[in-house]
Design a protein around this nucleic acid. Structure first.
Length: 904
RNA sequence: GGGCAGUUAGCGCAGUUGGUUCAGAGCAUCUGCCUUACAAGCAGAGGGUCGGGGGUUCGAAUCCCUCACUGCCCACCA
């Protein structure tokens, strides 16, 4: 870059910088990856809804992915982050239906093609907004690969997989009780139903026993434990239900054969209240004796358990609901009324008819559609397509259990295992138009009226297959009826790591061979079953290998009070506004500061503020360094020592950061760098090498400082891509197209721990002197003498002299008794100051210290005199205790001496 | 109802196989400073019987038991 500025503002302004560098990266194709001889590193994005907008969860999730990708790239790997979007069939179709409704158009008045045209229009209008927003965040995706779950390649993959699984016998079609979303009017998978506890009521209804005028042995029955209800209208059973509106569908009443309360009902018939239908009393051990009255109304069409009962007892099924959950023509009453309205009305009617025994408050779980949170799911009996899951559960379990595929945090292993072990077949058909249309083609029914169909990639193939079926040799294309339903969105998402590289349609191609298995997947834990588990299944089924090696589960982003971010609470900040306010780097850092793996993050603007402040710190450190005049002067000793020390400090951090990355502890890595830059580099190193006002900087120190700065920027780049690029470009002459993105983060070298320890002492000694200054109110400019009892043995002595503002360090055998003293470890220091010290105060302080150290010594002595400790503890631990004892003793001696001197 | 995590400073967290500077860092708080990179800053300071109780051990934030609370996942008692 040639646009180097001479003066930089005192405050960093991200706005000027971020768009500029993003364009630079994009225009120079720096995000692009193609297979080559380097080691690949690949992440596939969890595709956001194509018409969605960025929320805080995306911000966190994509920040993490970008950090991983950028780090890998700087480690010399061929890093690829593949972006894309998901068609999200239910959510998107719902939005389109809603928009059409606003224009006064009803979906059912449109043809499939007309509706799809609207849906595509909507997709093109809103699609990809979210991908634009990701650019603002700095996401380094290879945009040339942007995919969509309904684009041509992905769609073809889905159909191919469907046909393949059907041919393998894993897909079947069947009449089953499924979760029905009456608003979207489609079936859902079990995973798409979310249960909420609700305050509800348990209604106790009277079912009169049919044709029973007198119960002959009533007294005896009662004596045997039967509970017999009777009123002026006759004998009756009491049934407890939470859903009185379903009584029109009752086709039996069920008791437990062992229930002593209800023995008298065996073999009888009862009358459904209001409806008047006479139904049998059946017996099944499924019924809980203790629940309610032990009498269960059986509605096979509207409850999964009742459906099973209905099958075993061969009961009639009366479907009293329409697809939109209004009462159907099958019902003798309330036809056309909504189910919720019906409940209110029927309860009133039952009450008025004297058919309600009592009503109790009751908490029950009601299932809601994951996408239509305001609509309760209705169990509904209908024909759907299913995928048998047993085989897939088997192939997907081992790799997670043996850690070939690692979950971070690992607690999800267990959750995964339990789910797979209890897995049920996956309902994959949806009564929607927006999605992949199921590639099944129905033929005219056979003589017995049974449905006949073929599964094929397209109509042509379907025809071919159909003509092979005996009796259908002469069938015409016009006689084929393409299945109207679409597939569950996740039936395309589960192929994502494969279909992105066209590995389904074109197995063994160069790309799939190179990038698959991908490396890390970053996602929210709530889609572990929807998506993660199924990708593992598809991975083994179609690639014979796992889809990724690590899954990093992020936390849920919550507000400061720990509440989930939601539109209705209005507690979700607009990510783009945050970026505008704090800068993308500031926001990224704010999120990372609060987000250890697996923990929920409690978001607060102050985190971004901290991030922004850090940006500013880096910016100003850069201003300082860039402002130095360089001249041919000798390198001061303090600078030489500081350079030597910081080289090791940097290496030490390099190793720690690497270790944190290997464990996906990105927040810890971030914190290490934060401290490295702020404390070690800015507060200590820069202060140690900073020339006096007006003095020039020597070349050697300048060179080292620029190198350090360069390395710090590289280490920080994955977290804060924009500011680091901006400064890195200013740091030196860069060629067009050159970027910190590809600057290498080197392997750490061995750090000299003794030197780091020496620096720790330096900090304490300098701190000691600063304290003396503060207590004695000495100006910073006044040069002091530091006495080191027994001499100072520290390779970084010159740094002490400079940063403590000393004239010299004097080795003494005995310190000046009037000097202000302090200790660092067992070493004693003193600063002779003009004027007298407060002897009283000093004695008090020393005595307190002495008392503490004596106590400490006593505890060490106690330990050492314990034979069992000396005998059992490892050698090193005992030796250490002995050293502690010796140190304490020497310290005590020193302090006693000092006290005596003071008391004279 | 079953299972799994967690409980450490005012806050959100770290603490790797029980023993070195194991009771930590960050933010916040308090004190003093507009010191020629930075007040979005600098120099300091305070703050926790590691949820309660019990146990194992020479030694426990760390291992075991138990209780309490919080969160998450699963489940067909209407």
């Amino acid at each position: 870059m040639s646009e180097k500025e001479n003066t930089l503002a005192t405050k960093y302004d991200p706005k000027e910088v971020e768009d500029k560098w993003y364009k630079y990266w994009e225009s120079h194709d720096l995000f692009k990856s193609v297979p080559d001889e380097r080691e690949p590193y690949c992440i596939v994005i969890p595709p956001p809804n194509v018409t969605g907008v960025l929320h805080m969860g995306h911000m966190l999730n994509n920040t993490i992915q970008d950090i991983l990708i950028r780090r890998a790239r700087m480690e010399g790997k061929n890093a690829l982050w593949v972006p894309g979007t998901d068609h999200a069939s239910i959510a998107t179709e719902a939005k389109v239906v809603k928009r059409l409704a606003e224009q006064g158009i009803r979906k059912r008045d449109l043809t499939r093609d007309e509706f799809l045209k609207h849906a595509w229009d909507w997709t093109h209008e809103h699609g990809g907004i979210i991908l634009q927003q990701l650019r603002k965040l700095g996401a380094s995706c290879d945009w040339s690969r942007t995919a969509f779950t309904m684009d041509e390649t992905r769609s073809k993959s889905v159909l191919k997989v469907f046909v393949d699984l059907y041919d393998k016998g894993y897909i079947y079609r069947g009449l089953r009780m499924v979760n029905w979303d009456p608003k979207a009017q489609t079936a859902l998978s079990n995973e798409e139903v979310i249960y909420h506890e609700e305050k509800s009521h348990l209604y106790y209804l009277k079912y009169y026993v049919d044709g029973l005028q007198t119960l002959e042995n009533e007294e005896q029955l009662r004596a045997e434990g039967n509970i017999i209800h009777k009123d002026e209208k006759g004998y009756y059973a009491v049934v407890a239900t939470t859903r009185p509106e379903t009584i029109m569908g009752d086709t039996a009443m069920c008791i437990n054969p062992k229930d002593p309360k209800n023995q008298w009902l065996k073999g009888r018939k009862v009358i459904v209240p209001l409806v008047g239908r006479v139904i049998n009393v059946i017996e099944d051990r499924y019924v809980e004796i203790e629940f309610g009255t032990g009498c269960l109304k059986v509605t096979p069409a509207h409850d999964p358990n009742d459906y099973i009962l209905g099958k075993t007892h061969n009961l009639e099924t009366i479907d009293i609901f329409n697809a939109d959950a209004t009462i159907s023509e099958q019902s003798p009453l309330y036809v056309g009324m909504d189910r919720m309205e019906c409940r209110k009305v029927i309860v009133e009617d039952l009450k008025n008819a004297g058919l309600v025994e009592k009503i109790e408050d009751y908490d029950n779980k009601v299932g809601y559609s994951e996408r239509n949170s305001d609509t309760a799911v209705e169990p509904r009996l209908c024909m759907q397509w299913f995928l048998k899951m047993k085989h897939f559960a088997e192939i997907a379990l081992p790799c997670v259990m043996n850690d070939e595929l690692k979950f971070h945090p690992s607690k999800y292993k267990n959750i995964y295992k339990v789910w797979l072990e209890g897995i049920q077949d996956w309902c994959i058909s949806r009564q929607l138009w927006w999605g992949h249309r199921i590639p099944a083609y129905f033929l005219p029914t056979d003589e017995e009226g049974k449905e006949v169909y073929v599964v094929a990639m397209n109509e042509e193939e379907a025809l071919e297959k159909a003509r092979k079926i005996p009796g259908y040799e002469n069938i015409e294309a016009s006689q084929l009826r393409h299945d109207e339903d679409a597939l569950d969105t996740w039936f395309s998402s589960w192929l994502w790591p494969i279909s992105l590289f066209d590995g389904i349609n074109n197995p063994g191609n160069e790309e799939i061979k190179y990038y698959y298995p991908t490396n890390d997947l970053v996602t929210a834990p709530d889609i572990i079953f929807f998506w993660v588990a199924r990708m593992i299944m598809a991975g083994y089924e179609y690639m014979g290998d796992l889809p990724f090696r690590n899954v990093y589960f992020t936390g849920v982003v919550r507000d400061k009070l720990g509440r989930k971010m939601s539109k209705s609470l209005g507690n979700s900040p607009d990510p783009l506004k945050l970026i505008e306010h704090f800068g993308a780097d500031g926001v990224r850092m704010g999120l990372m500061l609060a987000a250890p793996a697996g923990n929920d993050i409690l978001y607060d603007d102050s985190l971004c503020e901290q991030g922004r402040n850090f940006n500013n710190k880096i910016w100003n450190a850069f201003r300082l360094v860039k402002g130095w005049e360089v001249a041919d002067v000798e390198q001061p000793e303090a600078s030489r020592q500081a350079v030597e020390w910081f080289r090791h400090q940097l290496n030490d951090a390099l190793a720690t950061v690497k270790d944190h990355f290997s464990k996906f502890r990105l927040s810890d890595a971030m914190m290490v760098l934060y401290r490295l830059f702020w404390e070690e580099f800015s507060a200590w190193y820069l202060e140690a090498v900073k020339p006096a006002f007006g003095q020039p900087m020597d070349r050697a120190t300048m060179k080292a400082t620029l190198e350090f700065f360069d390395m710090l920027l590289r280490l920080l780049h994955p977290f804060m891509p924009f500011i680091t690029e901006e400064l890195w470009q200013h740091l030196d002459e860069r060629k067009d197209g050159e970027s910190i993105m590809y600057a290498r983060i080197p392997e750490p070298e061995q750090a000299d721990q003794a030197l780091l320890k020496a620096m720790a002492d330096v900090k304490e000694i300098v701190g000691g002197v600063r304290n003396v200054r503060k207590q004695k109110n000495l100006p910073n400019k006044e040069q002091l003498t530091l006495q080191a009892v027994g001499g100072l043995n520290n390779p970084l002595e010159a740094i002490i002299i400079k940063l403590a503002g000393l004239e010299k360090i004097e080795a003494v055998t005995e310190k000046d008794p009037t000097a202000a003293a302090f200790m660092v470890g067992t070493a004693e220091f003193a600063v002779p100051v003009a004027g007298s010290i407060d002897v009283e105060e000093e004695i008090k302080k020393l005595e307190a210290d002495l008392a503490y150290t004596r106590g400490f010594l006593a505890s060490v002595d106690k330990k050492l005199s314990n034979e069992r400790f000396v005998a059992n503890a490892p050698e090193a631990v005992v030796a250490n205790e002995r050293k502690k004892k010796a140190d304490a003793e020497s310290k005590i001696a020193t302090m006693e001496q000092a006290l005596q001197a003071l008391k004279k």
